[in-house]
Simulated scan of single mutants.
Amino acid sequence: MLREAATNGDTTDLEEYTSMTSYISKCINDVTISKSITTLSNQKPWMTAKVRALLKSRDSAFRAGDKDALRTALAKVSQAIREAKPTHSQRIHGHFQSSGDTQRMWQGIQSITNYRPAPPACDSDASFPDALNSFYTRFEAQNDLTVRKTIPPPEDQVLCLTKADVRKTLCRVNPWKAAGPDNIPGRVLRECAEQLADVFTDIFNISLSSAIVPTCLKTTTIIPVPKKFPVSCLNDYHPVALKPIIMKCFERLIMRQIKDLLPPSLDPMQFV
């Protein structure tokens, strides 16, 4: 259906076809449930996930008015706390067992004192994003050469990806990877690999045959991360680029195809 909407005669508009990522993002927003998690500043350092779960069970029994369940929940909470405190104490003592490991010693001191570094202050200057953008794109501003597309020879064989390879790559996506500007998280691509493999295989093969990369897959979100504190100039920011995860999958598939064509004499640690 998506390809038919983007096809006019024998030509498929790749930009319109790839806009299906916006539809995926809309579906994610429709079914995603937002939750607010409150973290108390006086939370005990020995608090564990097991104790938190038992405390929730205790509160549920109290609100329900079930005295027997509340009595059982209180006993379990007390037992879990008695187990959590010695475990936390042993973990702290482990930081001071080796006098030569100063890093672990400082980690133990920070844990005892509940030390938390102050978050860096955000620059409130409205012109700061424009200044960063000009700083990061200064190399492109000096390049006045016109990009020309090279027409491949007719005897060249175009790479063709299979649905099995695309599905395998989607299943291996790290669900904890940060999403790019398309707002499609890795967990969605991984869990819905079987349903998305067909359409993405088609998009990838059209892109390879036409030698065109869709604009939405080339869009990148730049996150400026300070190299040091305090920041004194724009060069003290390290730009971290967040690309769409599906574009990373595309690049990984192409890399495998290229590596298969390379001679075996290539060093396995050579970057492609």
Rank of each mutant, 00 (worst) to 15 (best):
L242R: 07
P239Q: 09
V188I: 15
G94W: 01
T219R: 12
P224M: 10
I92R: 02
V51Q: 05
D101C: 11
G65M: 05
V213N: 06
H93K: 14
C27P: 00
N174G: 05
Q90S: 01
C160N: 11
Q142S: 10
Q43C: 09
S111P: 02
D267H: 07
E194C: 04
P181K: 01
D66S: 13
T221N: 12
M47Y: 03
K44D: 01
G100Y: 00
P263S: 07
F139Y: 08
Q107I: 00
D267S: 12
P230Q: 12
R82Q: 13
T150H: 01
N174T: 01
R58M: 07
A126N: 09
P153L: 03
A61M: 08
P226I: 06
V173D: 04
E140L: 15
L196F: 13
T215D: 14
L14P: 07
T113D: 05
Q107R: 15
E140C: 08
S232N: 13
H88I: 00
A75F: 12
I245M: 02
T201G: 08
P119A: 09
D13V: 01
Q195G: 04
T87I: 00
L266H: 00
D267M: 00
E194N: 11
E16W: 01
T7P: 09
L132E: 13
K85L: 00
I33N: 14
V225N: 03
L55I: 09
K228W: 11
Q103N: 11
F96D: 08
S209E: 14
I246A: 06
C160V: 10
K76W: 01
K76S: 15
Q257D: 10
I258H: 06
F128V: 10
F139T: 13
I212P: 00
